[in-house]
Design a protein around this nucleic acid. Structure first.
Lengths: 345, 345
DNA sequence: AAAGTATTTTTACATGCGTTAAACTTAGAG
DNA sequence: CTCTAAGTTTAACGCATGTAAAAATACTTT
């Protein structure tokens, strides 16, 4: 199993008796080389240990076959599912995905963007940080690469493509559902780590007004924008429940992780949120976090179509990537959420 | 804000009046250039838009400043936490992490390894797939790079460094705890997606025998080795509970995600697992999944020191990386778990 | 001001492969 | 058996930077 190691194409050329340009063409696309040469090269490669140098190949091609992806936070199954979907879509299109996580730090996000530029990735997909991040990063990427934003949208960028869930539709739909089956819901906000936080909040308010109810938003005092969503949800509701407030309300949480914290607070106060009892406590979330079917009670929520979002982002990127220099208009694709009625509301 | 774009160092050299070799030295380490030149270059860079070409720089240096990391599965907060810990450790040591996910597919894992080799990363850290994967991949990486395995250990590799939790200690400790506070536990196995599955199972059996109890392992019939742990835990216990079995047992789950499914099955059967009642149902897990404090009841478990494992893996890698060609012995670092007593057991 | 040292510039070669043009083989058609 | 087209080899240049040696310059020190 100790095949001789070969480091350059030149050596390989000497070792198997095929010229270097032919090898070069072979590695780019075996179809560009005659049947007999392909056989000969293939047999030769079995006898030695050689892989083309990644940098040298990439440096000279016009296309690198890589697309860069930045996500803001790793420890959240929503983003990992999104990432998985992107990786699968990109892989099946023959691209290599380079992932960077900005760890909720604008400086890291910026550095990741620079890395992508210096690696001349063929395109980039970014799930942006929230208000903190400098929008210039996205504009810069957008100006220099095929570029798509995803998941969370800075509305002020009128030139950048976006793929994500239609929060007006999704949040509106579950708000309406809650109004119909129980009382008009209170909205438990999430820490404002990205643009979605506000967007969902506003979608809730708009729908409530449309239905003629008074919107009530809680959980916004703590402006500490960290990703400990469960702890946030639990803390906010614990405070209310301790004062005997909200114990018979419908509570719409800005996302499922907040809702999981909310369920916990309820349990600690001996409350049993549920869809069945008329007028009792109801808790609902947003996203369809993979754990929703396993909470007690199982969490009613709105599913974001993660697979579709990832696939659509890659599709759109590839489209831009192939249509060189075509001055196109901004594409904004908003994907509907799906109501998942379980037990909690 | 539309600075002129400059693509090569040569151009940059002309633009700001400093020779190319000096610029080259500057970009590698500003300290290698005189104070005055640094100032001059810095001012020049503010006026233009230039980033050194990633490939060209990497191609000629002996060191690329990159380390490759492969994890088997993305949608699991254990791995994302591990990854985060590695990224932080590597970043603070000045390295760039390139992450690849093998998506439980040995072929993808192998391709990722080849990518790392062709990119001449300075070192690689891999959390391996289970029995399915070809151990040759790890041997190959180990032979050609500073290399460390992590999380799950193929014992047959006697030449590869490993960092992970000491499952004999961790599983033993919680087994002992369960025996002490309740009845001797039954072990609810996890799908055998990696070597840890068996290792924990064996550690449980050994400890039970040591304590003079009869080990009982359930959940091994379904050999479908997928990552739907919660569904697995729920299905297995649902079967037992339906027959009235195990409803007053202590159940040690192979990991927290299985335990979350177990809690769900219990709730569906109207059972309330808990530490308080003598002789009642108890459920415990392993890993300290971030959601453990938020389940109902909060899950008693063993915490793996994820931060420490990631840091240690990077430390060990850097150590090997700096000590060139030193023929060293295999290093195996097993880190203790910590008992987290909550409500469920 | 002269001598000595620290930096920088010049010059030239190296990295591993993409790419092109011209010369050369080979196989199939007539 | 000659002609032709397809494919291959040879030869040479390019990519954007690293790196090393020698020459030139700037800065200190006495």
């Amino acid at each position: 199993m100790t095949k001789p190691q070969i480091h350059t194409m030149e050596e390989l050329s000497a070792a198997i008796g095929v010229s270097r340009p032919t090898l070069s063409r072979y590695f780019q696309d075996p179809a560009k080389v005659s049947r007999s040469s392909v056989e000969r090269i293939r047999r030769g490669l079995e006898k030695v240990d050689y892989t083309p140098n990644f940098f040298a190949t990439r440096m000279n091609r016009k296309t690198t076959g890589m697309i860069g992806v930045i996500i803001p936070y790793l420890n959240d199954l929503f983003f990992t599912r999104l990432l998985e979907s992107i990786e699968r879509a990109a892989m099946s299109a023959g691209y290599t995905v380079i992932t960077q996580c900005s760890h909720s730090d604008p400086k890291i996000e910026m550095r990741a963007a620079e890395t992508f530029l210096s690696m001349s990735v063929d395109g980039a997909i970014v799930a942006p940080l929230g208000n903190h991040s400098d929008l210039g990063v996205y504009e810069r990427l957008n100006a220099r690469l095929p570029f798509v934003l995803m998941d969370s949208r800075p509305k002020s960028l009128t030139d950048v493509d976006f793929i994500g869930t239609d929060h007006v539709q999704s949040t509106g739909m579950i708000t309406e559902y809650l109004c119909r089956v129980g009382g008009p819901p209170v909205f438990l906000a999430m820490p404002r780590v990205n643009f979605n936080a506000r967007e969902r909040e506003n979608a809730y308010i708009a729908k409530m007004q449309e239905l003629g109810f008074e919107p009530v938003v809680i959980g916004t005092e703590e402006i500490r924008p960290d990703w400990h969503f469960e702890a946030h949800g639990r803390a906010v509701l614990d405070q209310h429940f301790s004062k005997g407030q909200l114990i018979e309300s419908s509570i719409l949480c800005a996302n499922d992780r907040v809702a999981i914290g909310a369920l916990r607070a309820a349990a600690q106060h001996g409350l049993e949120p549920g869809a069945r009892r008329r007028g009792g406590l109801r808790i609902a979330g947003h996203d369809d976090y993979p754990l929703c079917p396993f909470t007690t009670p199982a969490l009613t929520t709105i599913a974001q179509d993660v697979t579709e979002i990832g696939q659509a982002a890659v599709d759109r990127l590839l489209e831009k990537l192939r249509a060189e220099n075509t001055t196109e208009n901004q594409v904004i694709m908003l994907i509907d959420g799906t109501l998942k009625i379980r037990e909690s509301a």
